[in-house]
Design a binder for these strands. Structure first.
Length: 201
DNA sequence: GTGCGGATGAACT
DNA sequence: GTTCATCCGCACT
């Protein structure tokens, strides 16, 4: 299967990219161990004008600078001091848009994922939720800024077309502090898929 | 320098 | 439903 090409990521419509990433296949190669899964849930973060975005108002810090990169790299950050969350940086350099990957349906390397999560059998909670899938995929700070054309982390087009009737748009999770931006329907998921994070409704 | 809260998940009552 | 793990950026002293 072909990797998504650089121009997929440099599009300025981060909302459209968040939708298009559903059904694509995310790979990581960490410690010589390749694992993969189908992306089933995403959220769009819309740059400096989005109060929920880390780069809101043009904030530029050691943490957020990755988001200002040219689209097509990974933005990984530590949440609550405990979980590494994976984002895909989009748009062109200087435009800090990103898509958070929130849910993944495991495809290959399931044994390795189970080991990382210290689980003994496949259950949805293995990779449902951004912190859970980050851990299962072996994602940590090392992958922050990694190019998605490289051999550590990348996304392929499976050719699988998700019918729009199966795509649900809803409010993003865990961003109540973003006030009027909290209700924007910028979370997308595949209807009925068990690897969508919790409420799954 | 200090204090606080966050794009969460697991283990409790 | 509640608590806690435990790091980093940021608004204050």
């Amino acid at each position: 299967m072909p990797k998504l090409r650089p121009d997929f990521y440099t599009n300025h419509d981060v909302i459209a990219i968040a939708r298009l990433l559903l059904g694509k296949v995310l790979y990581t190669n960490v410690n010589n161990c390749i694992v993969s899964g189908i992306i089933v849930e995403t959220e769009a973060y819309h740059g400096i004008e989005d109060k929920a975005c880390h780069a809101y108002g043009g904030r530029l810090t050691a943490r957020t600078q990755t988001m200002y990169s040219q689209g097509g790299v990974a933005y990984v950050y530590l949440c609550y001091g405990v979980h590494y969350l994976l984002n895909v940086v989009t748009a062109t350099q200087g435009h800090p848009h990103a898509v958070l990957i929130r849910g993944l349906q495991p495809l290959s390397g399931i044994e390795a994922m189970l080991e990382r999560r210290k689980m003994d059998k496949l259950q949805p909670k293995l990779t449902a939720g951004p912190g859970a899938l980050g851990k299962a995929m072996g994602i940590d700070k090392q992958l922050n800024g990694a190019n998605l054309q490289g051999n550590q982390i990348w996304i392929e087009d499976s050719g699988m077309m998700v019918p729009s009737a199966k795509i649900v748009a809803s409010a993003r999770i865990g961003i109540a502090y973003a006030q009027e931006h909290a209700a924007l329907p910028w979370r997308f998921y595949i209807k009925g898929n068990p690897y969508v994070s919790k409420p799954n409704s």
